[in-house]
Design a protein around this nucleic acid. Sequence first.
DNA 1: GTCTATAAGCTGATAGAC
DNA 2: GTCTATCAGCTTATAGAC
Lengths: 187, 187
Amino acid sequence: MDSKDKILNAALKLFIREGFHGTSTAKIANEAGISNGTLFHHFKTKEDLINRLYISVKENYKNYLLGQMEPCETTKGKIKQLWNTCVRWNLENKDGATFFAMFANSPYIDKLSKEEASRNFTFISELFQESIDAEVLISVNPNLMISSFHGSVKAFVSFIANNPENLDLDEHIDIAFKMWWRSVANI
Amino acid sequence: MDSKDKILNAALKLFIREGFHGTSTAKIANEAGISNGTLFHHFKTKEDLINRLYISVKENYKNYLLGQMEPCETTKGKIKQLWNTCVRWNLENKDGATFFAMFANSPYIDKLSKEEASRNFTFISELFQESIDAEVLISVNPNLMISSFHGSVKAFVSFIANNPENLDLDEHIDIAFKMWWRSVANI
DNA sequence: GTCTATAAGCTGATAGAC
DNA sequence: GTCTATCAGCTTATAGAC
């Protein structure tokens, strides 16, 4: 792992544990095992580091989704697989998910970074548009559909995070997807 | 308006515009029109200020909900009214909603504040539990139902925020509620 | 309750040697 | 690319007068 990645990993870990304010560049450098000067060789400013971290986590998310998706015949199957995979990334990458929750609306993330990051997820928009056109999904504003999708994923992940009883994960993933599917399926 | 409220208002405004890190106590005091010393007379530390602000916004949310709710015969009517009212608070109090999104998962908000704030919302839990018992809502884990409810509200609000075309708000509120209702109604 | 004055310590960032 | 040394400025918080 090169220095840049060491720094990004250390920053993610510290930001979610102690917040942006509580995490100085010195702490990040220390956690990464490099010097403060080296940090500023790789990142122009602290804000630059935050933005690059944001883009990096988003890209990790995208690659996970594309890597896990298998060919699937039906439209419903494709969407279910996407939903499941989103949930699993969020559960397996809690640091990344928390970082999004903390910083997605924050002023530290500039508009350019947001646009660059969201450009990676156009394949989701396309899937929904196709599904609406094919009358598999109800005919509503596609952006409302996408908001509903992500909202459902986030709500389920937050439910799992806050209810650490020994409940059957696969069973509840199925229940939650079926609930969401009823709200958007064209039947 | 007394100094304490002036400080809380100024802090909310600055936190969402410039972030926690970018907002010094001096800036807050200046925006509030009082001195830095006075700020520390009312709030023990900056972290104390953040936590008190969090509780204050949550309380404002609760009072809005309780104030707007009118007596309603049917269970579905009650839930629809609650959903609508939640959406309207989030749309009318964008600063508060953004503050939640930014800080709800953050380390600045301590556990005691979270508990104190969530204790105000037990009436929502009770409504859902009753509705499940009455077989108006499907029989799932009540916490999953609550997560789904808040997730649906947040998803809709985020859709409205990101799609500022001149779409009919009331019409879309109806559409979005109907979508969510299909996912939880016991029919 | 409110103000001014003050300070110790930390912050992000730079310069320059290797 | 990485390090050490360094700093100017800002940070939270306090003390004490009114």
